[in-house]
Amino acid sequence: MKAILTRHRGMPAQDGAGVKLTRIINQPSLRYQDPFLMLDEFRSDDPNDYIAGFPPHPHRGFVTLTYMLAGRMEHKDSVGNTGVVESGGAQWMKAARGIIHAEMPKQEEGLMWGFQLWLNLPAKDKMSPAEWADYPADKIPEVALDGLTLRVVAGSYQGQQGPIQQQEQQFEMYDLRFSEAAAWQQGKVSQQTRLAYVYQGEVELNDSLLQRGELVRLAPAAELTLRSKGEAGMLLLAAEPIGEPIAQYGPFVMNTQAEIEQAINDYQRGRLTTTT
């Protein structure tokens, strides 16, 4: 069975107060991958590319997951949560009915490298209370295999359970870190949405060579053999689609245009985080 359905590369973008990043999902060549709404990679050792950060801004109707490979980013929000995510750590924020937060670098030099993933919420959960959780690197399980380490950010692998468990939308997120020439196999998965992104080096997927910066859509029923000739890194994502209409306006993701207009109105009137 053909494993790779389509291949894509991200495009340069800016967000926040001018942070330079690569938009991988939710760009012209790759729109929503239900329930994954957006995937951004930020990677630079030039402070001018990230120092302005992401000042306070609103969200409603979805979940954000920030996963860091290098650097330090501070989170503060309107619910009173605060925390710093560092190399190897993750932060999960369920915006739901509304939250206003800021993500600002806690460094003035050095490499800042990580990802932000947006996941949709089902209509029945979009107006539920906001939540937030911080998971430092030592809370993310690692499975040591021959020549590589598999980090379980979400989902489970060989009895290891990732810390991010979202009842509204179960999903898997693995970080495969090859330290030398090695191979890893994965059978068919039950989830219909299945993605892989190479963030470092090169990875051979079955008979196709994938280079850094490439994302592929995978057939859920396909068996995978991943091989690396040296140091490399890959994210694997899998989830079941929600299958509902998506209406988006910037930081608001709902099901209808009327709900988007309500979100804008609520934000302008200072009622974003309430249900009345």
Rank of each mutant, 00 (worst) to 15 (best):
Y67P: 06
P47T: 05
E74W: 05
A263T: 00
G89M: 04
L215I: 04
T64W: 05
I264E: 02
S190F: 00
M112D: 04
V152G: 01
G71P: 13
E261W: 07
M38A: 11
E204R: 15
P220A: 14
W92F: 15
R271W: 03
L37P: 09
Q200A: 15
V253Y: 00
L5G: 08
K124E: 15
R72S: 09
T82H: 13
F36H: 04
E180H: 08
L121R: 04
V198C: 13
Q169C: 10
P28C: 10
G213K: 07
L272E: 02
L235Y: 12
Q33C: 10
P220I: 09
F115E: 07
M104S: 05
F171S: 02
T275K: 08
L215M: 15
W132N: 02
L30T: 06
L65E: 03
G71E: 11
E231P: 01
Q14L: 13
D138A: 13
A96S: 07
L272Y: 00
E202R: 13
A17N: 10
Y267R: 03
A232S: 10
D175C: 14
K94N: 07
H101R: 03
F62Q: 06
L272T: 00
V143H: 01
A181N: 12
Q14T: 15
Y249R: 12
E214L: 07
N26S: 15
T66K: 06
V203L: 15
T6P: 06
R31Y: 13
E259W: 01
Y249V: 01
W92C: 00
M1S: 12
Q200N: 15
E223C: 10
F252L: 06
N206G: 10
E240Y: 10
Q268V: 00
G88E: 10
A247C: 12
I242K: 11
Q167E: 08
R60K: 14
P251R: 11
L237P: 03
V143D: 01
W118N: 03
I242D: 05
Q166I: 12
R7W: 04
Q27S: 14
E108A: 14
L218H: 03
H101I: 02
L111I: 09
R227T: 09
V216M: 07
M68W: 11
I100M: 14
R9V: 05
A137L: 01
T274V: 11
Y157V: 01
D207G: 00
P55M: 12
G147C: 03
G270H: 08
V143A: 05
L39M: 09
A221E: 15
